[in-house]
Amino acid sequence: MSRGVSDLTSARWDDDDALLTELRAALDVPAVPEHVVAAAKAAYTWRTIDEELAFAVLVYDSSLDDSALVRGEGPRTLLFEGDQLSVEIEVTEQSVIGQLIPPGPGRITLTNPAGPVAETDADEVGCFVLPRPGRGAVRLICRCGEDALCTPWLPL
């Protein structure tokens, strides 16, 4: 690959041989499996997500925390913040354990790009446990009274 880079950056557009070399490289695109192409196209169906859902922002992810105390210890924890409602989760090997903030009962849905994979109630203090799904991107949709929150996609 490094050979290709130096060839290409020095390539001149007015040189026929160089242009043919560029063409050869341009046609040598990484092979992307058909189901990956299909999945990427299908992602677009999420364009029409419920309008009433507020999007939460990921404000903390222990897997990105470089402080020595956190590094390599314990399950991954994440905090998603919305305007009215926030949610903190811990991803263990078997489960997704979480709590709504402010604490209170609600309905929690875990969904992957194809649709909901698990659903549960949050108790009076907003705590919930969901089975951890297999690999791939998931998101939580939390409904608590009038408020509804949708986390960004999170690859597990």
């Binding site: 992307v32 499996p33 990956v36 999945a39 990427a40 992602a43 677009y44 999420w46 364009r47 999007f55 790009p113 690999r135 791939g136 991107a137 960004p152 996609w153 690859p155």
Partner: peptide
Amino acid sequence: SKDAEDVSQTVWLRLVEHL
């Protein structure tokens, strides 16, 4: 290849919301 597919999927899902 599984990880690569997960990365790809996450990128496209995020782009949908970023358009």
